[in-house]
Design a protein around this nucleic acid. Sequence first.
DNA 1: TACGATAGAGAACGATCGTTCTCATGGCAA
DNA 2: TTGCCATGAGAACGATCGTTCTCTATCGTA
Lengths: 186, 186
Amino acid sequence: MIDDTLARERVVEAADQLFYAQGVQAVGMDAVRAAAGVSLKRIYALFPSKDALVAAVLEQRRAQWNAGIAAGTAGADTARGKILAVFDFLDAWFREPDFNGCAFINAYGELHGGNPAVTRTVREQKASFQRYIADLVREAGGPETLAAQIAILAEGAQTTAAIAGTPEAAAQARAAAEVLLDAALA
Amino acid sequence: MIDDTLARERVVEAADQLFYAQGVQAVGMDAVRAAAGVSLKRIYALFPSKDALVAAVLEQRRAQWNAGIAAGTAGADTARGKILAVFDFLDAWFREPDFNGCAFINAYGELHGGNPAVTRTVREQKASFQRYIADLVREAGGPETLAAQIAILAEGAQTTAAIAGTPEAAAQARAAAEVLLDAALA
DNA sequence: TACGATAGAGAACGATCGTTCTCATGGCAA
DNA sequence: TTGCCATGAGAACGATCGTTCTCTATCGTA
């Protein structure tokens, strides 16, 4: 028998991939069991319900996103460079073959507030991203208002790329961010 | 017995409200029947399946959105003014008590490509909005690239307002659009 | 080796949903 | 009035799903 921690990881990882690719409601717990190789009994010992599993999956996505953003912006040495690097990070993400839009937006749109833990996690994720951008904007010497605008560009790029199925929204949003930065810092 | 056309209207209208408020998968056909006051037999005579009803609902949303945008921008007499009026239209929409995000983004995120007619309608809706903005940008004398940026701002405002549950993203996106317009038309 | 606890496989259960079917009702033609 | 057809209300059906339960095999221990 495998470790509880490992089983948990496998279940969350398998559920994440399935939920992201097909949607939460389209994936049954039995599909998660098959993909994770962990019995239903075990899954329900680790998570009290599917809702709890969904919340855990989104929590993991949140950590992955934060780590990805941190890694993607680490190379830039100015705040302005870090802000633009966010859009480069999006660009690379949009080009991944299994890109399917923002998991948080998808989950929020799908569950429509029917799962409070999901709503909370999605809100917190978006708010923390906005705080991250706000810190960078402040560091760059830009005004408060600029941060929200940059964040809106990033959100819009994600939904545009997801629905269109093409990655060019990242570069378009990046160019817009450059114009906004130049105008604010002039 | 009521007219086929009227019955159809009632069903689409009732389904639209329910789907938008609770999500497509969370609403059963029986709830549509109750809200529309049209028997299941009749509903299935008008629409071959729930998927077809969903497609019809989105098609109606598309017409409503286009009419709303046209009405909202009719007051402005310059192309630049019409572009900014789009964000005023969004602002008013975000403040409606039952605002729940963009129905197209929600449906796309929820059905995840499982319903081809939905995917097609959503893509077409977003593409036609982009064409509308592109026409205005061209009329204003702006470059091709600006249109995509404005559209991304509008998309981002919708998801940001939906998830945050507050309307200020419209004004923030409008301010960003002004900066982009000023920079492009200078 | 014998025993007891445990975990996995999968059946079972109850609920929900999309879709179809039944049957009683009501209006219309003769 | 009488017979018939269409209609609506809602039961029924088959499928799916979240969750739990049963049974059997396995493993550690004495």
